[in-house]
């Protein structure tokens, strides 16, 4: 975690988990995302980088239809999850979001106990048949969120009483508790200090075993540290998408190069 080793990264699999074709997003009159085509592989960490307002978060929110909650937002084009169009009329966004979990920029635990924070998702999706199964899920999720040791003695304490880094790991644990297949992370470390960031990054790398992870980040170092694939967005366009190593060492597009070297942003 301490240096940039993009070249050592290898992509584990070529299975495409999410495939987006010709995606357009409008917020009222604003054309936020233009013609984005991208394939996101399973068991891979894909990083979305780009300057503020370039559409990377918007695109991320399209992947689990969180944009549905914004009235003026229109999404066009096809986004396929395992070959199924998630914007099909028959798709219930609630079912989709159980499959595609999300971690937000600001840690947002529910103002409930740590236990209830984790147990909420499994409860509403009926993942546990009884209390002991639920206890198991909570423990497993908290372990996966690398926060079990810190909170195991105070599961009844409010989740909002944790520190910022702990809260964010709690939110990650909450997201993995519902057993999603894809985990979307919208700048998960922007509110965290370097130590908490390191913990979360380590966690992301571990999560790759079980999930496809898509992470939006402003930190290029972070993208280089945690991802295998990187996509660079600029002014609503997907400029370049490829192996993280390639993007950082040998970008094909001049705009990518300018951004990475700090000339635009």
């Amino acid at each position: 975690m301490n240096d940039m080793r993009p070249l050592e990264r290898i992509v584990d699999t070529d299975t495409v988990k999410i495939s987006a074709r010709n995606v357009q997003v409008h917020y009222g009159e604003t054309h936020a995302i233009k013609d984005v085509d991208v394939d996101l592989e399973a068991n891979t960490v894909t990083a979305f980088i780009g300057p503020s307002g370039c559409g990377k978060s918007s695109f991320l929110r399209c992947l689990n239809r969180m944009n549905d909650t914004i009235d003026i937002c229109r999404v066009q084009g096809d986004i396929l999850l395992d070959g199924e169009d998630i914007y099909d009329k028959r798709v219930d966004p609630v079912q989709l979001r159980a499959k595609v979990g999300m971690v937000f920029q600001k840690p947002n635990p529910f103002p409930k106990s740590i236990y209830d924070n984790i147990a909420y998702g499994p409860r509403i999706h009926g993942l546990a048949r009884n209390k002991s199964e639920l206890d198991e899920i909570v423990e497993k999720s908290l372990r996966r969120g690398a926060i079990w040791d810190e909170v195991k003695d105070r599961l009844d304490a409010p989740g909002t009483g944790l520190s910022g880094g702990q809260q964010q790991r709690l939110c990650i644990a909450r997201a993995v508790a519902t057993e999603p297949e894809v985990l979307l992370m919208d700048e998960p470390c922007s509110a965290l200090d370097p130590i908490a960031t390191a913990q979360v990054e380590e966690l992301i790398d571990e999560l790759r075993q079980n999930f496809s992870v898509v992470i939006v980040t402003h930190s290029m170092q972070q993208a280089a540290r945690v991802s295998q694939k990187t996509a660079f967005f600029h002014l609503g366009h997907l400029v370049e998408h490829g192996e993280t190593g390639e993007i950082f060492t040998n970008p094909r597009d001049p705009r990518t190069e300018s951004y990475i070297t700090g000339r635009i942003g």
């Binding site: 689990n64 969180m66 909650t69 609630v94 079912q95 979001r97 159980a98 979990g101 999300m102 971690v103 937000f104 600001k106 947002n108 635990p109 529910f110 103002p111 909420y120 998702g121 509403i124 999706h125 939110c171 909450r174 997201a175 508790a177 519902t178």
Partner: peptide
């Protein structure tokens, strides 16, 4: 952010309103 959190773990709109 509370609504987002609830929707993000797959709660329906009504669940997010009534539970959170």
């Amino acid at each position: 952010s509370i609504r987002d959190a609830a929707l993000g773990v797959g709660a329906s709109r009504m669940q997010s309103v009534f539970h959170h």
